[in-house]
Simulated scan of single mutants.
Amino acid sequence: MTSTVTAIASLLPTTTGQLNTQPPIAQIIPILRSTFGLLRAFLSQAPRVLVALATPLLIFVPLISRLLSPVILVFHIILDATVYTPYAIISNVAAALYPLYVFCGIACISGAVLGILGRSLVTLSNNLIAPELPKATQSLQGLSMRSRKRRRKSSFTEDS
């Protein structure tokens, strides 16, 4: 009996060695929370550090822009002549012709729909009025299938 009591007593948790009942995900949460906190602190200070490092380089910006101004001006003129002006002309012409384009498009679509609808109605009415059409072979039975030769009339006659 004493052996069973000691076996049961050894299975019960004691104050010094309690069983860990937390899931593994609960142990990762504090680690992730501290990692993201450090990352947020670093990213909040990164713009200030970049501005502090780049401030001395801002002295060279006016000098570089003055040296490159002829190249920039040439590129601006080329872009203005080859891209901006044709785009403005095409967009203005398209805006001016838009009502005509829409009118012609609607006219074409309406004509196609009316043509298809009219053809369908005529076919339907013909099938209702005269379901069987006379066969073409019966009407052509009197004609010979042999090709006939035509005599040519010459411009020169034998009498002359």
Rank of each mutant, 00 (worst) to 15 (best):
Q18E: 08
L19P: 00
N20G: 02
T21F: 07
Q22V: 09
Q22W: 02
P24A: 12
P24D: 06
Q27S: 15
Q27T: 14
I29E: 10
P30A: 04
I31Y: 05
S34D: 13
S34F: 00
F36T: 07
F36M: 10
F36W: 10
F36L: 15
G37N: 06
L38D: 15
L38K: 15
L39R: 05
A41T: 14
A41Q: 14
A41K: 12
F42L: 11
F42P: 00
L43S: 06
L43Q: 10
A46C: 04
A46Y: 13
P47F: 01
P47G: 00
P47V: 01
V49S: 13
V49E: 12
L50W: 08
V51S: 12
L53F: 05
L53M: 07
T55I: 09
T55P: 02
P56N: 03
L57I: 04
L57E: 05
L57M: 09
L58D: 07
I59Y: 08
I59D: 04
F60C: 04
V61F: 01
P62Y: 00
L63M: 10
L63G: 10
I64V: 15
S65L: 15
S65D: 08
R66N: 14
L68D: 05
S69T: 07
S69F: 05
S69Q: 12
P70Q: 03
P70V: 00
P70W: 03
V71N: 04
V71M: 06
I72D: 01
I72Q: 08
I72M: 09
L73H: 12
V74N: 04
F75A: 13
F75L: 15
F75V: 09
H76V: 08
I77E: 10
I77N: 12
I78Q: 09
I78K: 09
I78M: 11
L79I: 11
A81M: 14
A81Q: 15
A81K: 15
A81D: 12
T82Y: 03
T82E: 03
V83R: 02
T85H: 06
T85R: 14
P86E: 03
P86C: 03
A88P: 02
I89Q: 07
I90N: 04
I90E: 02
N92I: 01
V93T: 07
V93Y: 01
A94S: 14
A96W: 03
L97M: 07
L97A: 08
Y98P: 00
Y101R: 07
V102E: 05
V102I: 15
F103K: 13
F103T: 11
C104M: 13
G105V: 01
I106D: 04
I106T: 10
I106K: 11
S110A: 15
S110D: 10
G111V: 00
G111F: 09
A112P: 00
A112Y: 08
L114Q: 10
L114G: 00
I116P: 02
I116L: 15
I116M: 12
G118D: 01
S120Q: 11
S120C: 11
L121A: 14
L121V: 10
T123G: 03
L124T: 12
S125Q: 06
N126D: 09
N126Q: 12
N126T: 05
N126L: 14
L128F: 08
L128T: 07
A130F: 13
E132P: 01
L133H: 04
A136D: 05
T137P: 00
Q138F: 07
S139T: 07
S139R: 05
Q141Y: 03
Q141I: 10
G142P: 01
L143T: 04
